[in-house]
């Protein structure tokens, strides 16, 4: 039996059908003929009669049209999914981008002795405190550097004494 059913001509199919009716086919060949009749689009009264004898009319088979519809549905689902994923990616990227953008609006307020101050005073106070914070950071860096120097000196002396 040919492997590709598309190579079967109607004449060949009818010949095989007659052989089936004359019980000249082996079990394997009958199974193969059943497969051919289920999947071929070629039809004739002889093949239809054989199909009825085999009981193939009640069997569900995938016609080319059904396969095409099924493939079309699958492609449609994947196209829709891909479009949805791309939309989500673009939306998320936009959210991350705008989130990381610094806002142009200044926020400045202060409370002194339990009372909220004016914006000018709050700004001046903030500038003073920011400068104080910078000085704090420099002081701490200097302290850490001094401490590290002591440690290095100690280690060097320890190595020399050994």
């Amino acid at each position: 039996m040919k492997e590709n059913i598309s190579h079967f001509t109607l004449a060949e199919i009818e010949r095989l059908c007659r052989m089936y009716e004359d019980c000249q086919l082996s079990r394997l060949e009958e199974t193969e003929l059943e497969y051919v009749l289920l999947n071929t689009s070629l039809k004739s009264p002889v093949s239809t009669e054989t199909r009825n004898l085999m009981g193939l009319s009640s069997k569900i088979h995938l016609s080319e049209k059904d396969l095409g519809s099924r493939n079309f549905r699958i492609k449609k689902i994947w196209r829709f999914s891909a479009a949805a994923v791309i939309a989500v990616v673009v939306l998320a990227s936009g959210m991350v981008f705008f989130r990381n953008q610094s806002s142009d609006t200044e926020v400045c307020y202060a409370y002194v002795e339990g009372e909220r101050t004016g914006s000018d005073e709050a700004r001046e106070l903030a500038m003073q405190n920011i400068a104080r914070a910078e000085q704090f950071i420099q002081t701490v860096d200097a302290l850490e550097e001094a401490e590290q120097s002591k440690v290095n000196h100690f280690l060097n002396n320890s190595n020399l004494s050994e």
């Binding site: 400045c108 202060a110 409370y111 700004r123």
Partner: peptide
């Protein structure tokens, strides 16, 4: 601490800089 007389609260955010003290 906004209403605490022993504490001065300062908040500033501008030009991408953030400070609270």
């Amino acid at each position: 601490y906004n209403s605490n007389r022993h504490v001065t609260v300062s908040v500033y955010k501008n030009n991408g800089n953030y400070y609270r003290g």
